[in-house]
């Protein structure tokens, strides 16, 4: 009886069936460990990304006494919103937020409109010099704006086009601390990372089928009509992507804002000067207290973006997948 069983087992271990099932379970173990490693990496990285935000929230509700209490970590014993209130008052939150968001929305709309317009021109019309001009677009992406910041500043400090403005008003205009420099640059496709947006739109329009326009032309539509009513509605995924990037980058921008519009009261600029303001005006000398209040300011600043992002996250991802960034 026993012998028979052993014999049976022996033949079974040599059969194809057995080998297959061993391989299967081997794969199962392998997959399990692979998935485990992936999960650990993803959770670890997510923690690294989220931890500063957790820290921000903790700082915002942490009174100074609790901060100095060695027994308290991350979760304050007597949470209050004192830090948030101080930051709220110091950065003049409602007003700065309105200015920042309002301006960013205007820039966002202009960017999407102008860059898609120019990108369409590059994608669909084989006019002489197309290739050279597009190479120059790439040049504007590659050469950092920082290179030309000094002449840009002096240009807008005494703004003039071929002496016309001097002729009318007697002297060139000083556009520093007005929104016009950035508006002018955005309208002419030279705004914050406009080159990149033009590139994205060009790639996207190149990917659309030519028949779309041919049909419109045969039906007697003009070039601009075709662009506005046929091509633009088809470009919505890349428009969403560009709009989100334009909004976020403009809202967070410190470079152009502090170069041209330091006194306009943008949130991002106010945040950079918050520390000196705290010690100068409120006489707060404790660096840790300053840090807690700045954290509250940062939390207030990123809150609107996070809310917008949570609502648009799905469209954002879909937009990117179809936007033709890849070309």
């Amino acid at each position: 009886m026993d012998l028979q069983l052993v014999q049976k087992a022996k033949t079974y271990t040599k059969s194809e069936d057995f080998k297959l099932s061993v391989k299967k379970s081997e794969n199962k173990v392998k997959n399990f460990f692979l998935n485990l490693v992936i999960i650990i990496i993803l959770i670890g990285t997510s923690f690294v990304i989220l931890s500063p935000i957790i820290g921000l929230v903790s700082d915002s509700f942490m009174p100074l006494e609790d901060f100095y209490n060695p027994l308290i970590y991350l979760i304050p014993e007597n949470p209050n919103a004192q830090n948030l209130i101080t930051a709220f008052k110091q950065i003049d939150y409602p007003k700065s937020l309105a200015i920042s968001l309002g301006f960013s929305v205007v820039i966002m709309l202009l960017q999407a409109f102008i860059c898609s317009f120019v990108g369409y021109g590059f994608a669909r019309f084989d006019f002489p010099g197309n290739k050279i001009l597009f190479a120059l677009v790439v040049l504007t992406i590659v050469v950092p704006v920082q290179t030309i910041m000094v002449p840009l500043y002096t240009q807008f400090r005494g703004f003039d086009i071929f002496g016309i403005i001097s002729l009318i008003s007697g002297k060139p205009l000083n556009l520093i601390n007005t929104p016009y420099p950035l508006l002018l640059m955005t309208i002419t496709g030279m705004g914050l990372r406009s080159g990149l947006f033009i590139y994205i739109f060009r790639q996207f329009f190149k990917g659309l089928p030519k028949e779309l326009e041919s049909a419109a032309f045969i039906d007697g539509a003009g070039t601009f009509y075709t662009y506005f009513f046929i091509m633009l509605p088809n470009a919505i995924p890349s428009i969403i992507t560009v709009m989100l990037f334009a909004l976020v980058w403009q809202y967070n921008d410190v470079f152009f804002s502090s170069l041209f519009m330091e006194n306009m009261g943008f949130l991002s600029v106010k945040l950079t000067t918050l520390a000196s303001k705290l010690s100068a005006q409120l006489q707060i000398r404790d660096p840790n207290q300053v840090k807690l209040i700045i954290s509250s300011g940062v939390l207030l600043t990123i809150l609107p973006l996070v809310v917008i992002y949570l609502f648009l996250q799905k469209y954002f991802m879909e937009g990117i997948e179809r936007s033709g960034i890849v070309g």
Partner: peptide, 19 residues
Amino acid sequence: KLMGLYFVAPWVIGFLLFF
């Protein structure tokens, strides 16, 4: 083909004037 120049004109102005 030349219609394309209308489309890229804003960028060309910006490029020359500001860049």
